[in-house]
Computed example of a mutant assay.
Amino acid sequence: MAEYAHLSNINTEFADALAKLPPAPPVLSEDLAICRENYPTKVIPACHALFEGYMPPESAYKVTDRRIDVDGAQLLARCVVPTPKTGEDGKFPLLFWIHGGGWTIGGVDWDDYKVRKLAVDQRISVVNIDYRLAPENPFPAAPNDCLAALKYVASNEESFSADLSRGFLIGGMSAGGNLTAVTTHQYLDDPLSKSKPLTGQLLVAPIICHPKAYPEAYKSQLLSMEQNKNAPILSRSMMNAFLNWYQGNPSDPRLSPLLFPSHKFKVLPPAFVQVYGMDPLRDDGLLYEKVMRENGVKTKLEIYPGVPHAFELAAPSTKLCRKFVDDFEKGVQWLLHAV
């Protein structure tokens, strides 16, 4: 959005942190093999480092890996459940979490530390789900997997130490935010959603419309792909590479959830949205929050000026990073009380 162009001006604390980093090849590359090679060696250590010193003791939670059969594949579902305290019955609200990675890289270990801390702090069961990756499993494998897995979890809440009447959230970052928006819309069309309704969405830097499918009415509000085309970490060319590997039809709402019929937005659950100011996806998050809000959906928006996509992994010691991490947990708390 034009009025948000100033959000692209680099945050001075982030700039200082970036300048102190030793020169290194970029983690993301338009060579998918390099992206996947960097994932365990660079991305995961950075994700873990972000929570060093903040992790609860292992006795405070239990981790169980399950397999969900979907369309001939077995999806990994890692469930993190807080150890019950005095007065708790061992049943908790549930968050269904979808990892990012441009639909082509990543897995449950991406946000493993993040959701372990969240489960303990917020007394919530978290199901951290894998899905089949493109290009080997092109669109719509990922949204199909996420919907099927969500329905399985909703139908088997006891297996995940959950009581969905206390809260049933869905969330994800980046491509995971995209899949969160898509899966939320699709789940609303399923009869199961009547008895097991989703009660909140966590949308962290989501992509909500393919640039080739921007509606004419919204083009003037989707400027960040151009304004932040050369942003560090995630550039426009890198985002285009992810979209090309994903192989989806730009106009399909299962890729571009902004394009779902307008009446469907009126029945979406409350949403917490986090947006990076120097991100090609900035205006996606801002616009999607605006469209939901204008359709009567309860929303809460947090913006982080002057930092790029996933800046927290490159600058974990900055004040804005700690705010970003704290806001995430506060957003979960807000959603659990928003209905």
Rank of each mutant, 00 (worst) to 15 (best):
G248V: 15
V275L: 03
P308C: 05
F311G: 02
V332R: 02
N244E: 13
F260N: 00
Y304H: 00
V275P: 09
P250R: 13
S256M: 07
L320I: 15
P270E: 07
S235L: 05
D279F: 07
F272Q: 01
D284T: 07
R254G: 06
Y276N: 09
A271V: 02
M238T: 09
H263W: 14
D283R: 00
L320G: 08
K298T: 08
W245A: 03
L259D: 04
N240M: 13
P257W: 08
E294N: 11
T318I: 04
F260V: 11
T299F: 10
D279C: 12
S262R: 13
I233T: 06
P232R: 03
P257N: 04
L287F: 04
Q274I: 11
M238N: 00
G296D: 09
H263Q: 13
M292K: 06
H309C: 05
N244I: 13
E294G: 05
D252A: 13
L313A: 01
V273W: 04
A241V: 09
N249Y: 08
L255C: 13
P257Q: 05
V307T: 01
Q247G: 09
L320N: 08
V332A: 00
V273L: 03
V307Y: 02
N244L: 12
D252I: 15
D327G: 06
E294S: 13
K300E: 10
P270W: 06
F242P: 00
K264F: 01
V291L: 08
N240S: 09
V325S: 03
V307S: 03
E289P: 02
P257R: 04
C321K: 12
K290T: 11
G296M: 07
E312V: 04
P250H: 13
V297A: 06
I303V: 14
T318Q: 07
Y288S: 02
D252Y: 14
P280R: 02
D252K: 08
E302R: 14
A241M: 10
N244C: 12
A271L: 06
S237D: 12
S317C: 09
F324V: 12
L320Y: 01
D326G: 10
N240L: 12
L243H: 01
P308S: 03
A271M: 05
V297L: 00
G248I: 15
Y288Q: 02
